[in-house]
């Protein structure tokens, strides 16, 4: 069926630029954080910051925040399944290495 009128949410220049600014700040944060040694938490800190950045890109640049719930659900499922794939593999290698 053809759509006759779809809601197009336009993100303003201003808002896009704010997101860009935050992303640059977070990049600086992650570089600075790497100068400190948190032990095994190093990777956790780095990946957390990366995930916040990724979240901003996905929600705003990729527009997911303004999409139908279906889109949000399937994005979540995809990353959830990837997490299972990596996580369950650690049932093996976590006890072997």
């Amino acid at each position: 069926m053809t759509e006759h009128h779809e809601e197009h949410h336009t993100v303003s220049y201003r808002f896009n630029t704010i997101i860009w600014g935050i992303l640059l700040c977070l990049t600086a944060v992650t570089v600075i954080a790497a100068q400190f040694d948190f032990g095994f938490l190093n990777v956790v800190v780095a990946l957390t910051i990366a995930t916040v950045k990724a979240g901003l890109v996905i929600l705003f640049f990729m527009h997911l925040k303004y999409e139908k719930p279906l889109f949000k659900i399937i994005v979540f499922i995809t990353f959830f399944l990837l997490a299972i794939a990596i996580g369950f593999t650690f049932f093996d290698i976590g006890y072997r290495y």
Partner: peptide, 9 residues
């Protein structure tokens, strides 16, 4: 692979 993995899977 590890026994743990064998059990879980």
């Amino acid at each position: 692979m590890s026994d743990t993995a064998v059990l879980v899977f």
